[in-house]
């Protein structure tokens, strides 16, 4: 069987795909690193909320371009607005989930509010996109990214600048995570215990939310708004079923994440399907395999 993928990547128009491949891999490795935390703290909803708020951010970018009469546009503006909206959403949800964990179990707090942020972000994004798309096209002469690429990601749309920014930021996120790994992990598995040990858990929580927001913003580019949260959930969810040691879980999670990107990316090229959803489907497949096989591997680990 000959792989079209290699022909694509090393063929005459291969340069078109490489930035996307590099960015996707960087995001996947970083997401794999944070994924066990997301799984332990049941933060997958936060990933959803942040990415959907990012969608509102994209709508906001169009609005700004429109209102400024076309003077303000381009990837710089997009990146800044996206980061700001996502960080705001991340911080907001950190506060909300803090209220839940502190035991105020009133109806309307915690996950309810995250659900509201999510649908509100989605709706605002749609409305703004619909309103501003035509005027922005007229003003800048460029069509704004179509909805499908926003929702499901577009590897081809990634430029080399995007790719290198992604790599640098991902390295930064990974370094910060490693630097504070002990308190982050302790916060994730036993928040009250961490507080008793003198850890400022609210700071840790804010830090983790910011790291997650950054990764989600980067992942939106590759996997889209709808799927960005998946790269934060699937590798960790699979990895925790495969090992009893935290370090091993993190390494497994990173490896599985990379495997999902390779398998999903290659099959997307081969079958001529969108890579974002295919990567997520590959992640789902990996997770399902991990669910089916846990006992075998656990026995090996235990012995």
């Amino acid at each position: 069987m000959s792989l079209n993928t290699l022909d694509y990547l090393f063929g005459p128009s291969g340069w078109l795909y490489w930035p996307g491949v590099v960015a996707a891999m960087a995001v996947a490795l970083t997401a794999g690193l944070l994924s066990p935390l997301v799984v332990h703290r049941k933060l997958s909803f936060v990933g959803q909320g942040v990415s959907h708020a990012g969608f509102a951010g994209l709508g906001l970018v169009l609005l700004v371009t429109w209102l400024s009469g076309g003077a303000m546009h381009g990837p710089g503006l997009t990146a800044v607005v996206l980061l700001v909206t996502s960080l705001a959403a991340g911080a907001l949800m950190a506060r909300l989930s803090q209220h839940t964990t502190r035991g105020s179990r009133q109806a309307g707090g915690g996950d309810t509010a995250i659900g509201v942020v999510m649908v509100a972000g989605m709706a605002i994004g749609f409305v703004l996109t619909r309103l501003a798309a035509e005027p922005v096209t007229r003003l800048t002469g460029q069509r704004p990214p179509d909805l499908e690429s926003v929702l499901f990601g577009s590897v081809v749309a990634v430029s080399w600048l995007d790719a290198w920014v992604t790599v640098v930021v991902c390295t930064l996120v990974a370094t910060v995570t490693w630097w504070y790994r002990r308190r982050i992990v302790l916060w994730a598995v036993d928040e009250e215990g961490a507080r008793a040990l003198g850890v400022r858990t609210s700071h840790v929580q804010l830090l983790v939310m910011l790291l997650l927001s950054v990764v989600v913003v980067l992942a939106v580019r590759v996997a889209g708004v709808v799927l960005a949260a998946a790269v934060l959930v699937l590798p960790g969810a699979a990895a925790v079923r495969l090992s009893h040691r935290y370090a091993a879980v993190v390494i497994t999670s990173v490896a599985l994440s990379a495997i999902a990107v390779i398998v999903g990316g290659v099959s997307a090229f081969e079958l001529d399907l969108p890579p974002g959803p295919m990567i997520v489907l590959a992640g789902v497949l990996v997770w399902m395999l991990a669910c089916i096989q846990p006992r075998l591997v656990k026995q090996q680990v235990a012995s």
Partner: peptide, 18 residues
């Protein structure tokens, strides 16, 4: 949580380490 008792305790005691 996939963590041994020993790891949990040493993480706890070293929570402030970076």
């Amino acid at each position: 949580v996939p963590m041994s008792v020993r790891d949990f305790l040493s993480y706890s005691l070293g929570a402030h380490l970076t």
